[in-house]
């Protein structure tokens, strides 16, 4: 995960070549690097730069279902900033992200630590914690939606053993977040644990041995050696989860039967769902485009905050 981007110096070929070949070779050396990166940048221009620029352009217009289009300047942004529904979506997104990510990271860390021990069936166990990842996201959301059904779901049935009244997981805000966070965590905890495990295995064992000689307990070793040494891996995992979590769409949408409203009152509507609703259910393209820019801003802030948090964890010890 090193971020250094310095070029390495390339030495010029020593051997003499015939003139034609030398010319060709020089073109090869000079031009080929650009040719090799060009597919990416051509695609970037077509499907990266173009959409970004046009998202900005669209966001300055007001589109109506009846078919009219009017210049509105920053009107869409101004309207979004005071739109309760938009803020509701932001709160939901951030809320579900936190509710999903914090336990997920902790569980993944402990799971990775457990997976790092020696035991039989190691590969089989590693594979089974990765199993959720190879299922398809909508299929799993369908299953969880059934498990969380109000009248016949297994979750409510089990809760009823403890005298808990049937929860309407799709109507109440916090329960709906919990249900969705469960789906997300089920899917990603094992994957992140495997990534952490890979990071753990690069930590030199003599560090632990030295610590053991000094009388450090296992728990202490985990907090003082494993965690700080895992920092680069954690940055990668957390940034990934941030982008994934803040653009959450599939699970909450399927949880409401493919509907992007996210509950009768938008109890679990995320920003991505808000964008689709505005753009493709109410056909206000300008409003959706403006919301997309604000989502981008949200991701940048989220990534920065997480980066700083992770850097602090075990950083200075």
């Amino acid at each position: 995960m090193s971020l250094d981007t310095l070029p390495r110096t390339a030495r010029t070929p020593r051997r003499d070549h015939p003139p034609g070949r030398r010319w060709r070779s020089r073109v090869d050396v000079k031009a080929m690097p650009y040719v090799l990166v060009s597919p990416y940048f051509l695609l970037f221009a077509a499907f990266g730069l173009f959409p970004l620029a046009f998202t900005l352009y669209y966001s300055l217009y007001d589109y109506d279902l009846a078919g009219t289009t009017e210049w509105t300047g920053l009107g869409n942004y101004a309207a979004l900033l005071v739109d309760e529904d938009f803020w509701n979506a932001v709160v939901n997104t951030v809320g579900m992200f936190v509710l999903a990510t914090v336990p997920q990271m902790l569980l993944a860390l402990f799971l990775a630590n457990a997976l790092n021990k020696r035991f039989r069936l190691r590969l089989a166990i590693r594979m089974s914690v990765l199993l959720p990842l190879v299922t398809s996201v909508v299929a799993v959301a369908v299953v969880f939606t059934q498990l969380f059904a109000r009248d016949w779901g297994l979750v409510n049935y089990i809760l009823s053993w403890f005298g808990v009244d049937a929860t309407n997981w799709r109507a109440e805000r916090i329960p709906s977040w919990l249900a969705i966070a469960t789906m997300v965590d089920w899917r990603w905890t094992g994957y992140n644990a495997i990534i952490f495990l890979a990071g753990m295995q690069t930590i030199p064992r003599d560090l632990y041995e030295a610590a053991a000689i000094d009388g450090a307990s296992r728990r202490r070793q985990f907090w003082q050696i494993t965690l700080p040494m895992l920092r680069p891996t954690m940055i990668f995992v957390v940034l990934n989860s941030t982008i994934g979590g803040l653009t959450l769409f599939s699970e909450p949408t399927t949880f409401y039967n493919g509907n992007v409203d996210g509950g009768s009152q938008g109890q679990f509507q995320t920003v991505a769902m808000f964008i689709v609703k505005q753009g493709f259910r109410e056909f206000d393209y300008g409003y959706a485009a403006a919301a997309a820019w604000l989502l981008f801003l949200l991701i940048l802030i989220g990534a920065l905050v997480n980066f700083l948090v992770v850097r602090r964890i075990g950083g200075t010890k």
Binding site: F47, Y58, W293, F296
Partner: peptide, 15 residues
């Protein structure tokens, strides 16, 4: 860092 497919839905769709 840019979730292009989410951010660019509107112009991509119109395209």
């Amino acid at each position: 860092a840019v979730p292009l497919q989410q951010m660019g839905v509107v112009p991509l769709y119109r395209l």
